[in-house]
Design a protein around this nucleic acid. Sequence first.
DNA 1: GCTTGACTTGGAGTATACTCCAAGTAATAT
DNA 2: ATATTACTTGGAGTATACTCCAAGTCAAGC
Lengths: 130, 130
Amino acid sequence: MTIKEVSEKYNISQDTLRYYERIGMIPEISRTPGGIRNYQESDLGWVELAICMRSAGLPIEALIEYVKLYQQGDATFAARLQLLQEQRESLEEQKAQLEKAINKLNYKISRYEIAVKTGKLTWEDDDKCI
Amino acid sequence: MTIKEVSEKYNISQDTLRYYERIGMIPEISRTPGGIRNYQESDLGWVELAICMRSAGLPIEALIEYVKLYQQGDATFAARLQLLQEQRESLEEQKAQLEKAINKLNYKISRYEIAVKTGKLTWEDDDKCI
DNA sequence: GCTTGACTTGGAGTATACTCCAAGTAATAT
DNA sequence: ATATTACTTGGAGTATACTCCAAGTCAAGC
């Protein structure tokens, strides 16, 4: 699979794919005799992982570290486990922040829906009226 | 309330507080006769909102826009409602991405927990073994 | 054989969101 | 009164994550 095909399959730019490879966020992709990237199935797994984790906000550094550990073989199982657990923690925290913000937005939206109908914006007592 | 007190109350740097004010992400804070920021209760509401929304990843631009609309008065209720709804949508999407990534991490973690015990990393059939 | 289009590399540029700094003013403690 | 500390401003610098570009190589169709 060429970089173009991968780029279209996952809706990610070729530049970004090359960038991910260059910095070690995905392992080096095998090449044709002419030196052109030829993505294998297992490479696609890495690409999927990278996209999934990045879209959740996981830092690139963590993914680079994970790839490095992976390439060092079975001796790094424990280190990889720890890395994954740390990142899960961080995503769970992020999710909590997100939910707090969504709740706040929902409350505000409910007030503004009334305000648009009545022309008056009202708040509950402890609210700071913003 | 001085900027130092606000900074300590919300665990945010004074630089960031001034930055938020300068770019219009929170309204201008009233000053003492000497020109020093003197945060009122309502200002704290804005600070809280800014911190909450930023920590959820809401872009600064959206918050600046919201403050602008707010300052234009009651005529912007509908515009503010729309802005809030759009941002909620975007946070809901972000939450979905986050959950996908957390699920993936949980699956990997479960495999690695076994791997650390047994010395062998195993995957289900459709997995790309990463 | 040559043109077209896709590929390569390394490096520079951009966007977002802070974060730091210098130079100066103001308030507080002794 | 003076030293220390906190505050002010505007502008420059940093971190992260891309994103674009230039110059060159390679492969397929005509």
